[in-house]
Design a protein around this nucleic acid. Sequence first.
DNA 1: GCGACAG
DNA 2: ATCTTGTCGC
Length: 275
Amino acid sequence: MNREEASGESWSSNQLENWTEEQDQLKKKLIAHDDFPWKLPSSPTELPQGSETLKYVGGVDISFTKDDSSVACACLVVLELPSLRVVHNELSLLRLQVPYVPGFLAFREAPVLLQILEKMRDDQHPFYPQVLMVDGNGILHPRGFGLACHLGVLAHLPTIGVGKNLHHVDGLDHSEVRRSFLLKENEDEQVIKLVGNSGFTWGVGFRPTLSSVKPIYVSLGHRISLDSAVEVVKMTCKYRVPEPIRQADMRSRAYLQKHLLGLLKDLGHTEWVTS
DNA sequence: GCGACAG
DNA sequence: ATCTTGTCGC
């Protein structure tokens, strides 16, 4: 064992270097424009010959238990447009070994989600999603490669990043975004561009209604433009969080609660309380 | 030096 | 991420 391995801190800094390198490599494969055979339902452009309309939108999310943040439930749902009915639902209960490190969420969450997607694709499932909404950012990320990009590239699937909180990058600040929505010139705007100090557009702040206070943050993940990503978000937003992600969130959370007792028993943490 | 930092 | 009741409003 060398000196670096003897120190846990050095090991983790090596790990972050490895992860950073992997993100930079995968980022070379990122496609930041529309790259799919279907068209958006209300698209004003002419329908390309032989192309289908977007019908199956997927959503993924992972819930955790409060006592042990390594116990998790991953969920993939597929909704049908335009009804927004859930036509497919896949759950996976597991332990995550990788911790959450800001800027490296994908290394914790992407493996499970990828596994669920691959199984569905290998089964030639008829409801395999045409585009996937992810609970986490796309290029709105310190190195421009968040979970939605990571998952999109690995699954070769169009993805959209949706953050419920803003990752402060390039001078972006959530209070600034909220202020922008309050400006008179933006009183009719549902969407605010997120332009950083560098001048780069990282994504948009989005409010489902003009009276909503807390926006969500949308950024492109893979094989889709920001404009198209926003269109998909608009089509799927009944509440603040787009339905595919909201459904995945509710279902994974419900599954964990339903099986909490069994989980604790398996982990040997149960203390039977009589009352 | 101190704080901020998707889920 | 998770812990949480009621409450105000369309």
